[in-house]
Each structure stands twice: as structure tokens, then as C-alpha cells.
Design a protein around this nucleic acid. Structure first.
Lengths: 231, 231, 231, 231
DNA sequence: CATGAATGAGAGTTCATTCAT
DNA sequence: GATGAATGAACTCTCATTCAT
């Protein structure tokens, strides 16, 4: 009834995320004084435990038991906060979409920029976010693979997120074409697909080879390749 | 010893694969005359059933029952040919790697080409193969996501395959740089990563949006972007 | 010791019960002045919430959470008053037995009546009570089904209650036979079983088909059938 | 696919049922020679194990593990035959309804009888069946309590079964009234409710007190009471 | 060559119960 | 007097795997 279901922490910040990642696998429980602190803490630990595991092993291969262990709880403890595994994932995706797509777009729309500047700003914002919260972005990319062509709720949710991303690119390119900023013969939809393809591919490659890869250099290549295609 | 395990058909050809795709969901059993034919037939049907399902739903979400149904067999029948689900996948990956990476490279090495020509030939060969056997290539790409950062045998196998792909690109670029064919400042490893990233991203996007996308156009963009980066 | 366990309200009256039924599903909390009032109030709300749910869904299918929600409390709040779900049920059965069997019998014994008059009075009293507190009676009948042939405490308790009912009927019939008021060949035990059977069956049918059934008519049939059998 | 789900044994006969009941709790596995025998045997053991447990403890309180243990199988073994616990119950109810209601009615309709004779025949057939297969009938009666006022599939199924029983009684009484065979003032629907009520009540009482009760005598009382009410 | 029966481990989920606050 | 967090056991159901036939 009054259990705190369905309102996963909105308080997660990149700092916290980064910190959590550097801790060891089973989070320590810092004996919080108040109930409120204890709740926020548990929610947070569940969120990060799930995030890490979903990215590492995939959503379907991650068990609630593993999430619980990573959060220093038992299965039942996790279910005190989430009503369904699917909902946990859905909320994670919603939050990520909000911060990685919607917030970024909103911020760009708020500024007065040319089409080209907006595209570049979009790329930079996404890259910055990915540098701060790599797992969040990876969750998106990897889920888009794990759930492609299924028919559950999560598939739809992910499709919608990607659609928003494509739409922004398409609209910006169309505007750029109208203003003669871009002069490519490429259809805007194809260009958006190329953006998404490069985005996903780079994230994957970066995740797979973080140790051996020079992130900034890859990003620079990404930008040049994409803008090159548009000119 | 009760069965011919571990020797999945090497005889699969792209034609067959393409044909299989256009057939109905449950393969018919055409009453083959000899035992040998019957065996090869079953192996074939298992292979294609598994391939289709692995790509559609992912390896871990595909049950032996589903594979069997798709092959017109029962679970036990499938286990007559495969010893473990993992082995089935391993053999599929081996075969795909052989045809999609090794054979392609071997053929290119056999011809006398400049570094640039070799790169272009590589891209074209991969794209041609992907057009003929899209599921095979998708299996590779999607598995590389599903199994990233795990520690099973399949993860290692996939890593090795990708390593071979990267190695060819790196060596070719290095040769091109030595011969002054390429003049990029980009580190060959970064360029190879960009190749792999774009490759995977494009395949994913193509698979996700086959209906809405102009494949050839995307491929052309791919080639131009990549070569642009190298010059 | 932390709480006034094991002393569920004896103050419940049929009026209250009837009133509660006509209220909305989640009882309101009327901010009682004193602690005592508050306690009695919560106890009352728990009692009625549980009663309604046990009858609707059965004891085992009703969760403490549901009871708590119906009483406007949380799980923990309910456990402040009850020590075990089983005890809550046990106390409900005790109270119902007291009012539906013992009080009724005591009142009849207090009057000077012939055997036949006593039987009729018993039937009428039970029917009147059932009309006022249908849920209480249904709890008894339905529990006798849910717990038949188990071996927990509740099973025993219900058996005892039914035994008291049968015993009264048997003794009254025996007396009536001795006084030549009844002249049936039927064994008193069989007649008592027939009484109980008809009682339970009618209550069930009435509950199942309250909307389509003419209660008073069913009751009249009950009385006539039973007395007919005895003459 | 080809698993034998959803076709629970039609071969169960009263003899077998009676025999099974007299065996000890965990059925022995008689090492059947053929697959077919083994299947029928397992299905049979599951059916009887479930029937016994459902009647003893109720459907919801019976776990698949208990059913499996009673059938000499493991949980997985039971699930090889049933797809869902709910389906197992549904099939049991269907079979019971077929034999206890439909077959009985069909047989009576086939004979040329007066309304009164048909009612008596109906009662006798039901009683005979109950003497041979008491657990089957008890399952019906007890389920009607366990599932009253729920909204699942089983509730609807049980309602339909009871409706068929009521309908036969109503139609027969209406015919009897038309032919002046019955002269009661009682509404046919009320009479049917009385029939059902007495039926259920008697079955319950008989089940609860089989040891102490003279079954035939109770049945005779049932018939006389019911016919008395109609005259 | 293949089936069908069966196992056992583990998944997601629910819930009575405890307890610090 | 009551809350909210948490546990642990039990439940339904799935699935890779084995094996007699």
C-alpha cells in the first residue's frame, strides 16, 4: 500500500554513480540512522547493483538474487522496493532516457544555435554524459540489442527512446538542409541512422576495449566522420 | 559412444541459408533416403532453426525446445546431434568466423592489392556476405553484446574473432601508412576500433530498421566515412 | 511484553458489523481522543477488515497486507495487535461461536420450552443472527470447508464448534423422542447431521446467490423440511 | 510441442480411483514396460495425488511439490504433464462435471420418465456416483466454496457447472408443475436452490463425518425432505 | 535416428513474521 | 501505537540435460 514501490531514486547523480563503480562488488551497509536514509540508501544500492549487472551480463541473465547480493540485501529485501524485475528495468530506462536524451535535447533547444552547432552540441553532450555515466549509456545500447524484435514492454520503451534520438537528428538535419548549412545528398533519415549506428557502435567498442582505447580520439573521429558525411 | 556429436555440418552455403529464411517457420522433413542424408538434413535444420532464434531472441533466451520445434524435431532429437547448447553456439560462431573473416581475408591476401584496395575489398566482401547471410553476421554482432564481459567459453571465442578482424585492419593500415597511401594521424588501433564500431553499429541499425532503411546507401556512407577518416 | 495481544475486542455488536458492511472498502480513521479509544478502534477495523476478506477470499488466500489496507493500517500495525494470523482467526471463531452457538443455546435453555419449541427457536435464532451478521456465519461455514481434515489448531477449533451445534440438536431430539413429541424413526445423530448439512448448504447457497434468491423463502423451506423429517 | 499436455487421462474409472485411495500416500512406481504405459500411469498418479490433496487441503494450499511427491515424481515431472496448476484443476473439474452432471442428465433424458421419476433418478445417480467416487464430488463442492466470489477461470468454470445442475432441477420441476405432478407453491428456482443447498450440505457433512454417519440413511432423509418440499 | 519421460537446479514472486525506530 | 525495512521460506514455473526404449 504505502510501500515505496515505483519511485526509484531520482537523486542519483553522476558523482554517486562514479563512486559506486569504484567500490567493491558487495556494497557495504553504512548503518544509516533514519528510516529515510536507510531507504534511499537501499534504493541506491539496488539501482547500482542492477545497473552494473545488467550491463555486465544482460537483463535476462541477471537474477534478483544477484542484484540483492550486490546491494547487500536478500531477494525479499529487493522486492520490498521493486514490484517486478521488469519495472526496475523500465524505471532505469526512463531515467536514463530523461537524462541522456530529453534533458540534453531540451538544453540544446533552449540555446539559439545553428543546425550544425546543434548537432555538434548534441554529440558533445552525449559524449560527456557517457564519460560520466558509462554504465547508464551502455545499458541503453546493450538493451537495444537484447530486446530488439521482442514484443514486451521493455522493447517498446527502448524503441521509443531510440526514436526520439533519431527524430532530433532528422529534424536538425532537415533544418540545416533548408538553411543550406548542410549540402549532403544523403536523406536525413539515412543520416540519422548513420548517427545512431555510429553512436551505438562506438559505445560498444569503447565498452569492450576501454583499457586499450583512447576514448577522446575515438570521439573526435566520430564527430569528424559524421560531419564529413553531411558536407 | 552413441552419436556423431561435435561435427555440425560444414556444408552450409549462403544459398541454403537464404533459402531457409524464406521458408515457413517449421521446416518440413523431406524423408531423405539414406541415413547420411537424413543426418545432414537434421543437422541443417537444427543449425538454421537455432540461428534464426538466436538472432531473434538471443542465445540465452532461446530454449532447446524452441530450436527443436523449429527443426521439426524434439528436444531429445536435438541432443542427439549436440552435446551442449554451448557447443552448438560455439560451432556456429566458428563457422561464421571462418566464412566471414578468415575466408574473406585469405581471398584478399591471395590477390596483389594496395593497402587501400585491400581495405575496400574487405569492406565489400563483408557487406556482400552480410547481404547474403544477414543472420550469420547478426549472430556475431549480437553475441558480441550478449557475451561481452562474461567469462565463459563463448565470450573468449567471440573476442578472438573480433581480434582477428581488428588485426587485419591494423596491419593493412600500418602497411598503407608505411607506403604513404594513407596519411592519417590516427593511430592504426584507433582506426581499427572505428572500423569495428561502425561495422557493428551499422549492422545493428540495419537489422533493427531493415524495413525503413536503404541498405546500399548506408553501406556507401560507411565506406566514405571510413576512408575519409583515413585520408 | 510490548502490546495488548490476544484480547481482540469483545465489544463488537451486530449493529456495528452491519454498519461496517455498508461502509466503503477502506475504513476511515476517525482520530480518536484517548489511547484506549484508538486501540479499540484499530482492533475493530482489523477485525472487520479480516472478516470481510476471509469470507471473500478464504483465510489462506488473504494476506496480512490486505487486512492492514482494509483497516487503514500497515502490516506492522496489524502485528501490533495480533501475534499470528492464526490467532486472529482463532479469536474470530471463538467470538462467533460464542454468539452464534453458545449465547443462542443459553438463551433457549433459560426459557421453559418443549423440545419442538426449542428446535424451532434454535433455528430462528440462528437465522436471525445470520441475517444481521452474515459474514460471521459465512466465516464459520466456509472455514469448516477450508480447514476440514487438516491438523492445525483451527481445524480442531472448528470441529469443536460444530460438535456443540450437533450436540444441542441431538439432545433436544432425544428429549423430544422421550416425551413423544417427535415420533421419527430417524436416529438423533442422523437428524443432527441433517440439520448441520442443511444449515451449511443453505448458508452457502444463500451467500453464492444472494442476489437471485429469496432468503426468507429458503428459510421457510429449511424449517419445514427439517421438521417434516422429524415427524 | 508434442508433449502430452492438456489431455489428462480419460481412462480413469471408479474402480481405479477406489483402489488408489486404499494405497499408501506415496504411490509406488510399478516400472511399466512401454512409454505409453508409463505415461498413462504417471498421468493417473498425478490425477489421483492431486485429487486427494485438493480435497484434503484445498487447491490453493496444495503445492505442486506435494502433488509430485504423492505421484512418485518430482516437480519437473509433474510439469511435463501439466502446463499450469490451474489447468490441472480445470481438467479435473471438466471431467467431473462431465461424469457427475452431464452424463447423468443425458442418461435420464434418454429414458421416458415423469418429472418426479426424473428428479428421483437424478438424486439417485448423483448419490451412486458420490458413493463410488467421493473425492470427485467433494472436489466440486469444496471448490465451489474455495472459489466463490473470485474472478479467475476456475470460479467461472465452477459456476457453470452448478448452473447446469440448477437448470436441470428447475426444468424438471417446471414440467412437473405443468403436469400437476407437483403442487408446491415454491418457486422452481427456490426449489432448485434448496436442492443444491441440501446436496452441498450433505456432501460436506458426509465427508466430515464419514466414520460416524450412516450414509444411506442420510440419503434417504435427503430424498424425503426434498420431495416433501415439492408436494 | 529419434522420442518421450523425467530430473534438478534455479528463476521470479509472495508473504508471514520480526524488529529498530 | 504504529511504521517501514528486511528476512527467509515457500510457491509456481522453466529449462538444460540425461537416458531407456
Amino acid at each position: 500500500m504505502r510501500s515505496p514501490r515505483n519511485d526509484l531514486s531520482k537523486t542519483l547523480t553522476p558523482k554517486k554513480a562514479a563512486k559506486a563503480k569504484s567500490q567493491r562488488s558487495v556494497a557495504q551497509k553504512p548503518k544509516p540512522r533514519t528510516n529515510r536514509e536507510s531507504r534511499e540508501d537501499s534504493v541506491d544500492r539496488i539501482y547500482h547493483s542492477a545497473l552494473r549487472l545488467f550491463v555486465q551480463q544482460g537483463y535476462r541473465s541477471t537474477s534478483i538474487d544477484q542484484i540483492a547480493a550486490g546491494a547487500g540485501l536478500t531477494k525479499g529485501g529487493v522486492y520490498f522496493y521493486i514490484s517486478k524485475k521488469e519495472h526496475l528495468m523500465a524505471q532505469m530506462l526512463d531515467e536514463i532516457a530523461g537524462r541522456y536524451i530529453d534533458a540534453v535535447i531540451a538544453e540544446i533547444e533552449a540555446r539559439k544555435l545553428t543546425a550544425q552547432e546543434r548537432l555538434v552540441a548534441f554529440m558533445h553532450s552525449q559524449v560527456s554524459f557517457a564519460l560520466e555515466c558509462p554504465e547508464e549509456v551502455m545499458l541503453l545500447v546493450m538493451s537495444s540489442v537484447e530486446f530488439s524484435k521482442s514484443d514486451d514492454m521493455l522493447t517498446k520503451k527502448i524503441d521509443v527512446i531510440y526514436e526520439r534520438m533519431r527524430k532530433f537528428v532528422v529534424q536538425t538535419i532537415e533544418e540545416g538542409l533548408a538553411n543550406k548549412v548542410f549540402k549532403t545528398k544523403l536523406h536525413p533519415y539515412a543520416a540519422a541512422s548513420f548517427y545512431v549506428a555510429t553512436h551505438d557502435g562506438m559505445m560498444l567498442e569503447w565498452y569492450r576495449r576501454a583499457a586499450q582505447i583512447d576514448g577522446p580520439e575515438l570521439v573526435r573521429v566520430f564527430r569528424e566522420a559524421f560531419l564529413g558525411v553531411l558536407s
